[in-house]
């Protein structure tokens, strides 16, 4: 406002030296209060597009594990994405634990990825470009390492959900979860 020259002549408003300082204080404080108000008024609009309460209420899912037998896998939805829950057999656990970390594109021990070894819980989304790998159902292709196989670009995951072969850069992501009791987990 000060840069754009006001074409009104100087001395348009009769200047009173004593008033000068008083007006400035009033002007500055009013301007500050107005700008603060506009900023505060913007917040409800910005926050209104954050997740709503009903969306947040579905942010956690409880899953009952008691029906899943050993060797079986179940897919459940969590925050709009599939989650793979596999009840691993002893061989699968042994196989996952004994892998040489140097062979892994994304090195992680099996112990880092599970809370209880017989339960492998991962997000069922390929870390390459987002397809859902096959391997949950009985007749599915599980890939060369006994875990999952992503049909889109040929990524192979092992029995710990780690990437072994193919273009995917990372292991299948482990969501945050807790055991509420021995047969129930809370994901998210």
């Amino acid at each position: 406002m000060s840069e754009i020259s006001n074409p009104s002549p100087n001395g348009t408003i009769a200047e009173n030296p004593e008033d000068e300082g008083k007006r400035d204080f009033l002007l500055i404080s009013t301007t500050t209060l107005s700008l603060a108000g506009i900023g505060l008024a913007a917040w409800p609009f910005i926050h209104s597009i954050n997740p709503a309460k009903d969306v947040l209420a579905l942010a956690s899912t409880e899953v009952d594990l008691s029906a899943i037998e050993e060797g079986q896998a179940v897919t459940t939805m969590w925050r709009g994405k599939p989650v793979f829950i596999r009840h691993r057999s002893a061989e699968e656990i042994e196989g996952a634990a004994s892998v040489n970390l140097a062979e892994l594109p994304d090195p992680q021990t099996d112990a880092e990825r599970v809370q209880r070894p017989q339960w492998l819980i991962t997000v069922g989304v390929c870390t390459h470009l987002g397809c859902i790998p096959s391997g949950q159902k009985l007749g599915d292709k599980k890939g060369d390492f006994g875990g999952w196989f992503c049909p889109c670009h040929g990524s192979h995951y092992d029995t710990s959900g780690r990437i072994r072969k193919g273009p995917a850069p990372f292991n299948l992501r482990i969501p945050e979860y807790n055991f509420i009791d021995d047969t129930t987990i809370l994901i998210g």
Binding site: P44, F45, H47, S48, N50, A52, K53, D54, V55
Partner: peptide
Amino acid sequence: ERIVRDVNYGWLL
């Protein structure tokens, strides 16, 4: 009603 109850500041909008 969802806007009023669940959307953040939906009641205000």
